[in-house]
Every structure is written in C-alpha cells, then in structure tokens.
Design a binder for these strands. Structure first.
Lengths: 158, 158
DNA sequence: ATCTGAGGCAGGTTTCGTACAGCATCACTA
DNA sequence: TAGTGATGCTGTACGAAACCTGCCTCAGAT
C-alpha cells in the first residue's frame, strides 16, 4: 500500500471544494472511488483528519463489537464515526470540506495537506505553524517511544 | 453492505414527516422496503436510534434466548423491542416520527441525522451539540477500548 | 354530514455533482 | 538558458437529483 507523504497547499473555493494532492490520490489507488472519511482528531488537534475508506471499515468493525449498553463505548463510537464525514472525489480530484470541519479547523480559503503515512491531515496555515512548534519539543522528549516495537502508535493517537 | 455515514439536517413538517438522507436510503438497499425500527437508545442518550430491519431481527434472536421467567430479562426485552416503532418509507423517501419519540428527543421542526455505520441516530440540533461536547472527553479517556487484545501495542505498553 | 388528521401527489426551489475550459507550474529538450 | 509540452490546480457553468411546501384525497370520528 502506498503512503501519504509530503506537504502541499491548495486553494479552497467558495463552495468549500479543495484539490487533494495528486500524490495522495495516487496513493489511494483503487480506493479513490470510495472516497475519504474526514473527522476531527480525537486528541483535539485543530485540524481535519483524513482516512481512506478501508480505514473507516476497520474502525467500524471494532466499534460494532462494543457493548451497546455502555455509555463509554457509545461515546467513543459517536466521536469516531458520528462526527465523521464521508466525501467523494469529483472528476478533477477535489473534495468538499463540510462546514463544521472548516469551522473547527479554521480553514477558510486555503488548506495545507500533511501526509502522515497511512492517513493525512488538513490544516489552516497558522494553526499548522503553531502545531509544528509545539510538537517539536514534545516529540524530542518522547523519541524513546520509537524503541517500542509497535506500529499501532500512530493509530492510537489518531 | 453499505454504511450509514456523515451528518445531514432535514426539516420535519407539521405531520412529523422527515426525509431520510438519500445516502442512508441507498445504504439500506433492498432493506428499504422493510422500513426502519426507531427507538430510544438503551444508554439513555436523548436521541432517536434507527435500525435497519435486519438489525432488529438480530437483536430479537438474542432476546429470544433469554428466560421468560425472569423479570430482568423481560424488562430488557420490553426496552429493546416493546418501545420500538416500526416505520416505513413513503414514495418520497420520508418516514413519520412517532410523537413519543419526538417528545423524548426534543425534535420539533428540524432533525439532524448522524451516521454510525450499521445504525444511525436522529437528533435535535442543540442536544446533539451538547452531546458532541460531552462525549469528546469521555471518548478520549476510553480510547483504549479500541485496542484489540491481540495487538502488539497492548503488550508493548504494559 | 361535517370535521379532522393522516397519507399521497405534484409543484417549485435549492443544493449537489459533473463537465468544461483557462492558468500555473514543473520537467524535459534543444 | 530559453522554449515547449505535459501535468496538475482552479474557476465557471450547466444539468440532475434531492429536498421542501402546499394541495388534494381518503378514512375515521364526532
């Protein structure tokens, strides 16, 4: 499976449409037709988190097995799926950003795409700059996390 | 099977009729003709829970195996099936929300549909906004529910 | 027999998806 | 280094679908 890598900036038009970087679309491959899931990260970053459809199904199968009589489990399901928007690509490789996600992320007429391997994020420029600064020291202090043999780390914070 | 995903807001007319999002109807596929089951969630969220017919049957088969001579089991069955409303679609893709569910959820002239994968919910706007806020912290504290017991992370982070 | 309410039908409006065309950027070539 | 072509991004326009509203009909009740 291909990976989402690099950054790039794209315009957002009056309808909330934005071109997804061609490299990201190429990374999606056959999954392009299924579109993307957009959500706010559960850790509270002020950006939009984007997932390929297969990743949504993966999460859903886990959530589906949670007990329906526990408020904690249902709250989790609400945040992971209930706030998620399913968007599809037009012929030019664009998606429409929902209003509530534009408001949440602060994105207005420009958006920065940030590849994170199996997922990517969409940021407003200034928020991303601030995030870069704050994560740098945090990452440096926690670099020992890399020594653990876990590929699930990125997923855990998504 | 297709999934119920994304949110959308629809008007409720004076007769309690509301259009179900076209994407949700598409997700139902052949099950459209069987209609939906509407209920209040067991965990007590102030919304309407909507289930495809197959999901009702699934729950029913579980309840079927419970002992009929225990008040607790019968109470459960009463909550899961006895309060459930079966509604069907008209030619326009609309359903009629029963009075007691509108009263319970606070829905009056507008309803927000929230996709949750294999089920969806119907909310009054302000109640949903409050629910979004309250579930965010709960979800963050319980994200470990998502980790499969077999995953390397569970062992690695012990 | 009239009234009331629910359900069905048809109009109009808006939103969404798609298509087309122009511009910028990057890479390759002479 | 300048020219040329291809690819990708952006803006506009048109068509179709979805949604909302009002009207009409039918059934049941008073």
């Amino acid at each position: 499976m291909a990976l989402f890598l690099s950054r790039s900036v794209h315009k957002v038009d009056k309808k909330g449409r934005v071109s997804v970087p061609s490299g990201f679309r190429a990374a999606l491959g056959d999954e392009l037709v299924q579109g993307l899931g957009l959500n706010m990260p559960i850790v509270g970053f002020a950006c939009i988190e984007a997932l390929p459809f297969s990743k949504i199904e993966e999460r859903m199968s886990v959530l589906d097995s949670l007990p329906v009589d526990e408020a904690e489990a249902m709250s989790l399901a609400h945040q992971m799926l209930g706030t998620l928007a399913h968007v599809t690509f037009d012929g030019e490789g664009r998606i429409v950003l929902p209003d509530y996600l534009m408001e949440y992320s602060g994105i207005r007429d420009s958006a920065t795409f940030v590849g994170l391997g199996r997922t990517f994020q969409i940021w407003e420029a200034e928020a991303l700059a601030a995030h870069d600064v704050s994560t740098r020291t945090i990452a440096r202090d926690n670099i020992k996390l890399l020594r653990k043999p876990t590929s699930a780390l990125a997923e855990g914070e998504a």
